[in-house]
Amino acid sequence: MKIKIEEKVIGGNAPVFVIAEAANSHEGSLEAAKKLVRAAATAGADAVKFQKFVVEELLISTHPDFELFKRLELKANEWKELFAYADELGIIAFADVFDLSSAAFMASLNVPAYKIHSTDLSNPDLLKYVAAQEKPIFLGIGASYVEEMEQALSFLHEDVVLIHGFQAYPTRLEETNLKFLWTLRERFHRPIGFMDHIDANEEFANLLPLVALGFGICLIEKHITLDRSKKGIDHESALNPDEFKRFVLQIRKAELAMGSGKNTFFEDEEKYRLKTKKNVVAKRNIKAGEVVTRDMLAFKRALGGVSPMKAEQLIGQVISKSMKKDEIFVK
């Protein structure tokens, strides 16, 4: 199954779709948000993603994070400027939408896709509204039961990517559960993505998504920050701009190694085959007129000829021209 978002294709044999997850690491600053967009574009990410919410619709007023999220909100005109800037740089920009007001605002900007955070996986009102926009949907499924995923999908259209992963600031390696990606593919037969949230300071931080490639994912989402040392929002699992650029390069190199899955050879492998495969040769000098018997045949590396698998077809044939020891039998 393939999904198209602007000029990009997700799924099938298309390159892995890389999302630079900026989320709220802009800390409420438009200038910082624009720097994150530029960093994502420079790194070669396919898209940059933020989080759009109205704090009064996201949290109750007594929630301990209410004031924090209030500080993180960008104004309507700032969102417009931010997305226009992303368009100038040629990178896809979209957002998690956490409420109907935010979804409607993103619709007014004609965003090319929507992300539904796992916090709203069981929010039928938001699911139905986003589905009605008829744009690709990235559905976060962290900390959700399969039955909840099925219910959510019943409200959505076909162009949905399920994204496995959750944020534990950071998520421990043993909690990543990459094998669940297989379960998702077999259960839902939809494109599957992976959100990586392990400790960005770990040596394995850039390697884990490469391992996930082997589970057939078509999308990778990874946090990006301007400076992890400042310990801002989501810094625990976020890569600095230079690290993110290396990360994208590693993904693209890994894709080259993944290949097409087809039983075809590159030029070097064709040469390797010619040099290393054994073929049927004369075990001794054979005179013209002799009838080929099994004891006349040997299997050795030779540049071309008849495969040992077809040696039996040579037995009983009459030699028309004398052959020297190690001479190749021809078809």
Rank of each mutant, 00 (worst) to 15 (best):
I116V: 08
V48T: 10
V54S: 13
L72N: 07
E81H: 07
L109K: 03
A113C: 08
A84V: 09
S102H: 07
F66Y: 15
V111Q: 10
D120W: 00
A103S: 09
L100C: 08
K80M: 14
D87K: 12
S101T: 14
L89I: 02
S61M: 11
I116P: 01
L72C: 07
V48K: 05
K70M: 06
L68I: 11
A76L: 13
N77S: 15
L109P: 04
H63G: 09
K70W: 07
E81D: 15
T119C: 02
S108V: 05
H63F: 11
A95Y: 02
E67P: 05
F53V: 06
T62K: 07
E81S: 14
Y85F: 15
I91E: 00
V48E: 05
G90P: 06
A84N: 15
V97C: 07
K115A: 11
F69E: 04
I92F: 04
A86Y: 00
S108Y: 07
K49E: 05
Y114G: 07
E56A: 09
S61K: 15
I116A: 06
S108C: 08
E56H: 09
K49L: 05
K75L: 14
S102Y: 03
L82K: 03
S102K: 06
S101F: 08
I116M: 04
V48L: 12
F50D: 00
S101G: 12
Y114A: 09
W79M: 10
A104E: 12
V111D: 07
G90I: 10
Q51C: 05
K70C: 08
S61L: 10
Y114T: 07
A95F: 03
F66L: 13
V111R: 03
S108H: 06
P64S: 12
F53K: 02
